[in-house]
């Protein structure tokens, strides 16, 4: 382990490989041996690209302890993810810290349905891999606006016992929303699951929670509030769950989907909208 340790100021987090998965969605493999050693499905890292950079959280999609690497999948939506997307193979990023957050709550279930939206379909992968190893029955609903955003299809469908694609423009699979698809599957009693996990926008999470509430199925929402330290020190990531304030980074990021205050989450996620657009304009001219 000693040789993995890196002193302050060293830039060890080298990009080993890089792949474009869809328009604006990239996958990178980074050297981060300590993280690779202890990661569990559902956990994330916080990265900082350069000296002036912001700290942003990204889910650990895959890891390889013997290579000492982790894999991240991200959508380029703002300054930091765009900077990250521009880094080339062989280049380094300044900071990677983790694994943060608690391991996923679905890992002990036998029959699991998981729903991912857009880039976050990738966040299902580590859970799926783990569940498959345990012999669980897995159902995946991959949802995106359009067919070309259904990412990691081979890897994910291979690990799913049932795999459904849904797009809102109908270019692939069912046309509609993830919630409607889930509702149809449950209504026709085609699908018997003990737990549903969803990751994506708060709007989708809310509609999924509304569906599963009717069927009284335990449902877990993987939340993505704005984070800063990811260590429970700042309180920036606080969310309201069952009228209690929780810190998503240390108490979550998964919570009971039926108890989350989505309106509050939505407004807090937009808190820096105008600042984000300003910095994008200044630095990326877009």
């Amino acid at each position: 382990m000693e040789s993995y340790m890196l002193r302050w100021g060293e830039m060890p987090f080298k990009i080993i490989s890089k792949k474009k998965l869809a328009e604006k969605i990239k996958m990178i493999e980074i050297e981060a041996p300590l993280v690779a050693r202890s990661a569990m499905p559902g956990q994330f890292v916080i990265i900082r690209v350069d000296q002036r950079g912001e700290r942003i959280p990204l889910t650990i999609v895959d890891w390889n302890p013997s290579r000492g690497t982790i894999t991240l999948v991200f959508r380029e939506i703002g300054l930091t993810t765009m900077k990250l997307g521009r880094r080339r193979v062989g280049e380094e990023i300044l900071d990677v810290v983790g694994p943060l957050g608690n391991p996923s709550q679905v890992l002990n279930y036998d029959r699991v349905c998981m729903i991912g939206e857009g880039v976050r379909i990738s966040s299902l992968y580590p859970r799926l891999k783990y569940l498959k190893k345990c012999g669980s029955h897995t159902v995946v609903i991959a949802y995106a606006k359009s067919g070309d955003e259904i990412i990691m299809e081979d890897e994910i469908s291979r690990l799913s016992d049932e795999y459904y694609v849904v797009t809102s423009d109908g270019t692939r699979g069912f046309k509609g929303t993830a919630a409607i698809t889930l509702h149809n599957l449950l209504k026709e009693s085609k699908m018997k699951v003990e737990v549903v996990l969803a990751v994506g926008s708060p709007l989708m999470l809310r509609s999924i929670a509304a569906v599963t509430k009717r069927y009284q199925i335990r449902t877990i929402a993987d939340l993505s509030p704005i984070m800063l330290d990811g260590l429970g020190m700042c309180g920036c990531c606080r969310v309201i769950v069952g009228n209690e304030v929780k810190f998503a980074c240390i108490d979550g990021p998964e919570f009971d989907a039926h108890l989350v205050d989505y309106d509050n989450l939505i407004s807090r996620m937009k808190m820096y909208r105008s600042e984000e657009q300003l910095s994008l304009k200044i630095h990326m001219g877009g």
């Binding site: 002193r7 302050w8 810290v97």
Partner: peptide, 21 residues
């Protein structure tokens, strides 16, 4: 003195890891 930043004790490494290392 080595300063190892980006290491969260309790997450990246546990106290047990430190003892056994």
């Amino acid at each position: 003195v080595e300063i190892l930043t980006n290491v969260v004790i309790g997450r990246t490494l546990t106290l047990n890891d430190l003892l056994s290392d």
